[in-house]
Design a protein around this nucleic acid. Structure first.
Lengths: 226, 226
DNA sequence: ACCTGAACACCGTTCAAGT
DNA sequence: ACCTGAACACCGTTCAAGT
């Protein structure tokens, strides 16, 4: 956050690293050319020497994140069956995404998709094919996985994605006010809070739900393999 | 798009309707206070009399869309079993979303969720409970459905969501250039293009995939019902 | 080669003022 | 009650200029 007083000239990598750090700590909205430059101890216009503008910066961000995932995935490559291989892959992607909460929203709002994303999905198809799937079922599996393959789901209930203050208090206030108008949701929350054996987890632990959904999808396509 | 020369005073509804029309035709990015005001034949500052600023405008947009869905869903309410009921509900939501391609991205980037969304999910839980599901499985089913319940999926391959020019040409150029580096994806596309019996659909008809995924999820939770 | 200052065309928004 | 003009604090970006 403070101005790094470094003598070495700016570079694309150093700029991207600072941008990611800024987005991680202050959210995507805080990532402006002027503030990023200030963090780097430089004027805003200097950035244009290393990057082709704001859009190019954002492209660089998603490229960096998907590369992080691909590296992580490649490191752990072994001789697993298709199912545990995909499962491990999705969970690895999720770990990266949890480190960069702004990444899912940015990735899905981008209109050009970096090569690394295609490479990532290509490896998935390869895994499916060698697991005995037809191209057609592999195609449908890809769509069924959707963003879960990249480690994130559209969490409509509590979107911390969009960067900015996570307005938890307001959400809970709303929720308690809504309670009597929403009988089924209220009952569900009460029931879940009750038989939650593990006290360290919230009433809605998304890691458990994430893995449940993955297994449900993997079960489903295993059956569709035919 | 053109300046409507109407005498009646502005209202919140008329402003929202114009905003939706503007977003539908020109994309979310084109929806600025100044341009919206121009479309309404008024100065930008006039909007603040009817709406609490830009954020309030966006809140109003998602509220309007979710209400469209809830109305559509209520119209067709019958005595179906849980499964066909959910299926019809999700497809109805999808139809609305297809009319407002900017809505998925906006909804998932919002940090306050309108009441209508909770009401929508409450009805789903109600359907599940009366279908014999436990609260726990209903909860997990909700997470498994994710954004599909609201009619959209994270289409990482061709995101036309973000408003703005749909950069199809560039994407296809990239794709053909990538072809040899992505053997499995290339093979999949070739196979799918080959045995596509229906010539009116593209090689990647997302409606078919959407329904495939829904059925896969419904099969999965039906089995998890226990 | 690398960085800067001044300037431009846009944003959303405030606030006092018009009718 | 409803709308406006001028002004402010921000954006991203261009372009000629500095070293």
């Amino acid at each position: 956050m403070g101005a790094k007083t470094s003598r070495e000239p700016l570079s694309r990598e150093r700029t991207l690293a600072a941008a990611i750090a800024l987005a991680d700590t202050a959210g995507l909205k805080a990532l402006t050319m002027r503030r990023l430059a200030a963090d780097l101890g430089v004027e805003a216009m200097s950035l244009y020497y290393h990057l082709p503008g704001k859009e190019g910066l954002l492209d660089g961000l998603v490229e960096t994140v998907i590369n992080e995932i691909n590296v992580e995935v490649k490191l752990a490559e072994t001789t697993e069956d298709w199912r545990t291989g995909l499962r491990r892959r999705f969970l690895a992607a999720r770990e990266i995404m949890l480190r960069h909460p702004w990444a899912p929203g940015l990735l899905s709002s981008r209109k050009t998709i970096p090569f690394g994303v295609y490479a990532y999905y290509d490896a998935i198809v390869g895994t499916l094919i060698s697991g005995g799937f037809s191209h057609q079922v592999a195609h449908r599996a890809l769509h069924a996985f959707g963003s879960l393959a990249l480690g994130f789901a559209q969490e409509v209930f509590s979107p911390a994605s969009a960067g900015g203050d996570t307005d938890v208090d307001a959400a809970e206030e709303d929720l308690s006010a809504m309670a009597e108008a929403l009988p089924h949701l209220t009952a569900m929350m009460a029931a879940e809070a009750h038989d939650a054996a593990d006290p360290t987890l919230g009433w809605c632990d998304s890691q458990v739900e994430f893995e449940f959904t993955i297994d449900l999808l993997l079960d489903g396509i295993a059956r569709a393999r035919g």
